[in-house]
């Protein structure tokens, strides 16, 4: 199983975790994050979400996040899988696993990874709600924006 992936298949947190802890003799902590499709957003009743990615660039951006995390937390191993296509309420859109000798680094790297995904990975979601649909738009993706990266790191280490 790849450490990072963009996939239309259902995400499997357990399989990704198993893969990352396979040779975890020196590790004492696993932190995970799962993002779920919520049934409401900004006062709208959400029916389902549709995710789209610029796949080759999205995979590169995920690898970049792994590299950035390794530079800050050298002992952490990180896995990130993001789903695309149509997702129903309650389904997982992203799973992140951070394995580390100690819990503080695992939690921090996991939080850092989701913040960076929202900043720099070229993935978009279209919200289909009761009465219409809308493309949600967050951050202007700029991996070289050091202020944004530091903001993610501050959140991760708060």
């Amino acid at each position: 199983m790849a450490q990072v992936a963009i996939t239309a298949e259902r995400l499997d947190l357990e399989a990704l975790t198993t893969e990352l802890v396979r040779e975890a003799r020196g590790d004492g902590a696993v932190a995970t994050f799962t993002g779920l499709v919520r049934d409401h957003n900004q006062g709208r009743n959400v029916c389902f979400l549709e995710y789209e990615a610029y796949e080759p660039l999205a995979v590169r951006a995920l690898h970049r996040i792994v590299d950035e995390a390794r530079a800050t937390w050298p002992d952490v191993r990180l896995g990130l899988h993001h789903r695309i296509g149509r997702l129903e309420i309650g389904e997982a859109s992203i799973v992140i696993v951070a394995v580390s000798p100690h819990r503080s680094d695992a939690f921090a790297a996991c939080r850092y990874a989701i913040e960076r995904v929202k900043q720099i990975v070229p993935i978009w979601k279209r919200e289909h709600f009761e009465g219409g649909d809308v493309w949600l738009e967050g951050a202007t993706a700029d991996p070289d924006d050091e202020n944004a990266r530091q903001a993610a790191q501050r959140i991760a280490c708060a």
């Binding site: 990615a53 610029y54 999205a58 859109s93 995904v117 929202k118 993935i123 738009e137 202007t140 993706a141």
Partner: peptide, 10 residues
């Protein structure tokens, strides 16, 4: 050449 709106993954 790709033009990308603000992203909204996660």
């Amino acid at each position: 050449v790709a033009f990308l709106p603000p992203v909204s993954g996660g």
